[in-house]
Amino acid sequence: MLYTEKVMDHFTNPRNVGKIEDADGVGEVGNAKCGDIMRMYLKIEEGIIQDVKFNTFGCGSAIATSSMATEMIKGKTVEEAMTLSNKAVVEALDGLPVQKIHCSVLAEEAVKAAVKNYYDRKGIAYDPSLFSECADCDHGCCH
């Protein structure tokens, strides 16, 4: 099997799939040209992520990492969500094939993009270096 049981579980029964119409922050990363796009919706009250939903276009691991990332940040503070690393997502899934690691990076970036959007909407000041843009984009694919 290409994927671990955990990955298959999150791929076939993704948690928090869907949209939040009145989201406080929405982030989208990836590129359809490269075969994966993640969109993350956050509902935030008093600095706590009350609800999170995602939509993903992509392979099995893109869907599984999105699902796992949403589980890992739900109920957490925004600051805690910002510390979510792709490595933690991979570990929580009991590993990913090497060529799929970029999907986990995408999941981390999707969370950050949604938080950034939340900060922007609310006018909350932040350190822009926390949201470093991808430097060497080759036809739009970052990873």
Binding site: I37, N55, F57
Partner: peptide, 15 residues
């Protein structure tokens, strides 16, 4: 078609 429909339902591109 069922599987295509499902994947479209969770796809931001389709949205």
């Amino acid at each position: 078609p069922q599987v295509v429909d499902y994947l479209r339902s969770i796809s931001p591109v389709w949205d």
